[in-house]
Design a binder for these strands. Structure first.
Lengths: 344, 344
DNA sequence: CTGTTAGCGCGTTCAT
DNA sequence: ATGAACGCGCTAACAG
């Protein structure tokens, strides 16, 4: 029965502090904004005391309204379930706290409609910019009210939108991954992806895969397999096809998963069907290096996720500050981590 | 060279719309707030047209300032790296969108100092309430400015703070987990935890473990092992001790991991030292059922994470709406999922 | 150095 | 049914 009794009192305002300190609001405002040199020593201590006594905390909303900037930036994530997203987020948060932003994180759960709604919501809160990692945002969604707010794309581009982008060097990564499989002598390879054809990173990875294989036409056989994780029946069907391929292939099959969620689904399935020694029957290589990859012995291409997130905020910051340079792409290299599953 | 040319234009305001529609701001405001019955049909269409033409979107900040509520709630997470957090988040997001809130997500990365800063930041943005899953927030951090804002605790209580709490029924879960190991005939068991002694869920799980073992005094030997994931040297040291225990124990050792991060570290270590068939030498049971548990055959106690997040928001909503009932605890049951690692 | 005044974009009386 | 005027908490001129 200490203080949690009745309805909470409303937070102190700048006027309360002014009254408490026996001065005008302006001086308080100056104090808050660090214009100390313009305040008498006496004034300073009185204000400090008043603030302390009232436990005053300036209202960011009011500040934002007045200044026209609220230090909020939006972060739209297609899929928080993907470890990639969480890792990128770490970089984003670090950069935000370094640059004085507060990220508003939105999770669209791989639904285009939610992406649209969140983007709308974010502009409604007048975020100063957005970092977008989405499935299907279209150009005009990102350019509401004519001007639009500064945006930085992560991992994937958006058709027709000239914005900064930062992500993995997909072509290099997929090429090296494929080469690794070729060097290990695999001759039957499947590239497995989710059915999001509009996602540029998916397309680039797939293209590089086929491009690299093309140089070995005849000797090596490769195909794309689509695994729809959002539709269990469809996924099961694909996996059955996969099983048949494994059983009938002339060589030990190699699988190149386009990202971690796909790799996980494959690993779970094979582990269930073939037992814990499934890697002896099938080789698995994955873009993304999830926490369980080491455990399962899965070869991976680790993305520089933290750097991607950090850099994205830096780019956005420049735009917010008025930077007007043409749109840039920042492609960071992946790191191939060879594990048991692709051993020969 | 379409529209992205010069500096972006500032978003339309309610006054712009009023002018465009040839009316007063008041009518626009009424329109926005759905008071249609008070507006003539003609007025309605004119306003709708004006809004459309200007692509007007009301400024939430200004609204919040005026109304005294901005529909923002804070979500403080101790560790986003823990899959538990992400899963809870899904429930939180679902409930938020159902109840019309926008969650401000903060990630404290297991640092008490960051928790304090984020909490402060959140009140600065005048969030209407907070959902807290933190390491070391103290009562007074959550009661700033006397009244404090409504708070709901997730997974763990805070010393001396009478707030709603929702989380796993830890005693039941840990008891059932321990019983499972006993039923399987293990006589050498270690309970492995991170060194956060102030976290109530950790203490409850550990207590239930020892309590349950106590009923078999003499026959079964159990101890707590502390694994500090934040300090690699220390963790390595602990794991070496663990190795020795495994090698010298009179029985096959059983490990009870207090959460997923701990279980992962253990699994990675054992896998490296003993090879992929490590589960034949050591049994592993974990609170939390991370995505890789099935793959590694690790027995797990799955938490109702989605429900926890959803319920937390519901509780918070009631408080925000003025609910004044005494603090409640909502303890949800876990589900034991038996896998190969605890087979005998 | 300090206080007064006027908005930022919006909702809300209170008239009309 | 509609609009004018005031104020939410704060900053930015402008005086003094």
């Amino acid at each position: 029965m200490s203080g949690s009794s009745a309805g909470r009192q409303r937070p102190a305002t700048i006027s309360d502090v002014a009254r408490e300190a026996g001065t005008g609001k302006t001086s308080i405002s100056r104090y808050l904004n660090g214009e100390m040199s313009v305040l008498s020593a006496d004034m300073r201590t009185r204000i400090a005391a008043a603030i302390e006594r009232l436990d005053y905390q300036p209202n960011q909303m009011a500040r934002g309204l007045k200044r026209g900037r609220n230090r909020l930036i939006g972060m739209l994530l297609a899929d928080l379930t993907n470890p990639y997203s969480v890792e990128v987020l770490q970089g984003v948060e670090a950069a935000c706290s370094a640059l004085g932003y507060m990220p508003l994180i939105c999770h669209a759960a791989n639904e285009v409609e939610m992406e649209r709604r969140f983007l709308q919501l974010l502009t409604t809160y007048r975020v100063e910019g957005v970092i977008v990692n989405a499935l299907g945002v279209s150009e005009d969604t990102l350019r509401p009210a004519g001007g639009g707010i500064p945006a930085v794309l992560v991992d994937r581009t958006v058709e027709g939108l000239a914005a900064d982008m930062v992500g993995l060097d997909n072509i290099d990564a997929a090429t090296r991954g494929t080469q690794h499989l070729l060097e290990r002598g695999f001759t039957e390879i499947r590239f497995v992806v989710q059915p999001y054809e509009q996602v540029s990173s998916r397309r680039l990875r797939e293209a590089a895969f086929h491009e690299t294989l093309g140089r070995f036409a005849g000797e090596v056989h490769g195909e794309t397999m689509v695994l729809d994780l959002a539709d269990n029946a469809s996924a099961e069907h694909t996996l059955v096809t996969l099983d048949r391929t494994i059983d009938t292939a002339s060589d030990r099959l190699a699988l190149f998963a386009a990202n971690a969620p796909v790799a996980l689904r494959i690993a779970l399935h094979l582990n269930q069907r073939l037992g814990p020694r499934w890697t002896e029957r099938v080789a698995l290589l994955s873009v993304d290096d999830p926490e369980w990859a080491e455990l399962a012995g899965v070869t991976a291409i680790r993305q520089p996720t933290y750097a991607i997130g950090y850099r994205a905020v830096e780019f956005l910051h420049e735009r917010i500050e008025g930077g007007n340079a043409p749109a840039r792409d920042c492609l960071l290299p992946g790191e191939l981590i060879v594990r048991a599953s692709t051993a020969r």
